[in-house]
Design a protein around this nucleic acid. Sequence first.
DNA 1: GCCAACGTTGGC
DNA 2: GCCAACGTTGGC
Length: 152
Amino acid sequence: MKYWLVKSEPDECGIDHFVAAGANSIRWDGVRNYQARNFLRQMSVGDRVLLYHSSCQHIGIAGELEVVASSYPDPTQFDVQSPYVDLKSSQEEPRWSAVDLVLIEKWPAILPLNTLKQNATQLEGLQVIAKGARLSVMPVTHEHWQVIQQLR
DNA sequence: GCCAACGTTGGC
DNA sequence: GCCAACGTTGGC
């Protein structure tokens, strides 16, 4: 089992979207960055995922998700109605991938980015606390996962 | 709203 | 292959 962190603005697809979906999964699509896509493609069913809220009032980790479907072609890249459409992508060689995620737990409170930064020594290398970090899908080591669990 | 950091594009 | 210009991300 591997560990990951995904970023989203809570208005777009936040923890409450997953709460509303209940036992139903939500497709994690619209990723249009190659490095992030490559990480999506490394996800396996059963992997655990931290959901991070960005660009909002309470920045930080909002809860835990689980991968229930490994990567498949992101349908939004072919949807001309979608803001994520990519006209340079083809059905034969889809450029972008999506996975399906389901809620494991909404944490009782957001674990603030500030708290993560205050524990930067223990979390050294965790990409979300790096200055200027823009990656929206990133791996989390088992050690970092355990530190984060203790901080929540 | 500002702006630093970053990824991508495209001319050469 | 280099790099300037541009658009976007995301914390503050």
